[in-house]
Nucleic acid binder design. Sequence first.
DNA 1: ACGAAGATCTTCT
DNA 2: GAAGATCTTCGTT
Length: 201
Amino acid sequence: MFRKIDRKEFFTRNAIEIAPDLLGKLFVKKDKNEYLAGIITETEAYCGIIDEASHSFKGRTNRNGAMFQEGGVIYVYFIYGNHFCVNIVTGQEGIGEAVLIRSMQPLSGIKLMQENRWKYSKRKFPITDDRKLLNGPGKICKAFNIDNSNNGKSLFGDNLFIAEQNPSENIEYLQTERIGISKSKEFKWRFLVKDSEYVSR
DNA sequence: ACGAAGATCTTCT
DNA sequence: GAAGATCTTCGTT
């Protein structure tokens, strides 16, 4: 059903190389025995020692430990008292870099993702506009039911993985400054699919 | 023990 | 377009 990427070498490259490479790939997670999937449309690379905006900049702590694992797991963190964000950890063990998934185009399990977004929220109606279902890191985690308990989980299992589209096409993308940070703004490490309606801004 | 900052989202106007 | 919600994490006392 899905063409899972289970080559370790895909994830042990540099975050800056992998971030654009993830565009057009599928992020898949099983929830309630159903496959939730989205086409990745927007990513940001966070690197180790030279990147002041990265959680790993000041070294390994209890919170960012997953970032320092070998590429191929996810790093989930809690932010602004409200939201979770999910990253694809990249590079060799001990480096501390990752790619933040910022936006996706819903692909399958859309109804369940709508419910997950709606549940425990104050809104009166579910989100029926696909363009607004997964266009932000916090929204993605809500829709996919991702929280702290998923931190450090492997992408080589059957419940959580990255897959290739069939056929894998050449994606045109733009490269801009990252969003929502105050340090290291000069690095243009945000990658988004050109002309996509499924991005955060 | 305390305080400030933070890779966001929603709800106003 | 601006601001408030909300709370964990980490550095400082």
